[in-house]
Amino acid sequence: MTALIILLATIATAMLSAVFGMAGGLILMGVLAALLPVASAMVVHGAVQSVSNGWRAVLLWRFLLWRTLAWYALGSILAAAALASVSLVLPRAWLFIVLGLVPAIVWVPKAWLHLDFTRASHAALSGLLVTGLNVVAGVAGPLLDVFAQNVEADRRAIVATKAATQVAAHAVKIAYYLPLVLAGDGLAISWWVLAAAVPLSVIGTTAGSRVLDAMSDVTFRNWTKRIVTVIGAVYVLRGVLLL
């Protein structure tokens, strides 16, 4: 039953992420955190999301903002270097609370934080902060969206570039938690489940990309905030109940 839930969540959240560029990873992390030990949940989430985001970037490669990716990678490398000397695994209750609070970032007024990841310094800062938060909380899509909400670009360019940056962030997360998993009791699920999740992630991403093509930029921006806010509220409640 655990394997079935994870596989169904994988394809459904891959479709959702392909449409909005976020939200899917947030939901999948919550599902995995409820079913698996935190370290195992982080590794499985990182692996599945790397494939999902990577394939989304491949499908939309013509829209990628390459300069942004280069500066983001620099910030991501700095975050990985800083995390290399720190060992931090949140208890399950606090993981849900942090997951739930992350989406609140998308409601910060643009006048307060006018960030734009097409600027070199902002892209590097994005890589540093998003990668760091991704390792601690498992997801950082809403924080990344703060750097993308002021970008004057096609919605496909935003989704494609965000997807590519998340591949780097999830790779750092896997590298951080995999030694803890291997040193403990293993992945907590059969490796075949992880292997089966990979093609399902590709299928879900492909299907969601077709929905994205048919959506307007206005609808894309409006629904993104609403979806992640509802998810965040549910996670905070879940964490408080666990406490």
Rank of each mutant, 00 (worst) to 15 (best):
D116G: 11
I227D: 09
L133N: 02
A195P: 00
A163Q: 07
L8R: 09
S85K: 10
I158R: 03
V19W: 01
D185Q: 15
I231L: 12
G239E: 01
N134H: 08
H114A: 13
T229R: 08
V240H: 07
S76V: 11
M22K: 06
A70Q: 14
F147D: 00
L143D: 02
Y176R: 08
A123Q: 02
T131S: 05
G25R: 03
F147G: 01
V19Q: 01
A84S: 15
F147I: 06
R119Q: 13
P37G: 08
R62H: 09
L113W: 15
A33V: 12
A33K: 03
Y177K: 09
V151P: 04
S126M: 14
A171M: 13
G239W: 00
A18F: 05
V236Q: 01
V202I: 15
D217C: 10
L187V: 11
L143E: 09
V198P: 07
L237G: 13
W223M: 05
V31I: 08
L133A: 05
N150A: 08
R210A: 13
L60Y: 01
A214W: 07
S76R: 08
V98C: 15
V234D: 04
G204R: 01
I11W: 02
T118I: 15
L178V: 11
L241I: 14
L4C: 12
G138E: 02
A207S: 11
V48E: 06
L36V: 02
Y235K: 02
S121D: 12
T165D: 14
T10L: 12
H114C: 14
L194E: 03
P142C: 13
G141I: 07
T118K: 10
A73E: 06
S76M: 10
V211A: 13
Q49C: 09
T224K: 01
V228G: 00
F96I: 13
R155T: 06
I189C: 07
T68D: 11
Q149E: 15
L95W: 02
F20H: 02
I77R: 06
A164H: 05
V167G: 04
R221N: 05
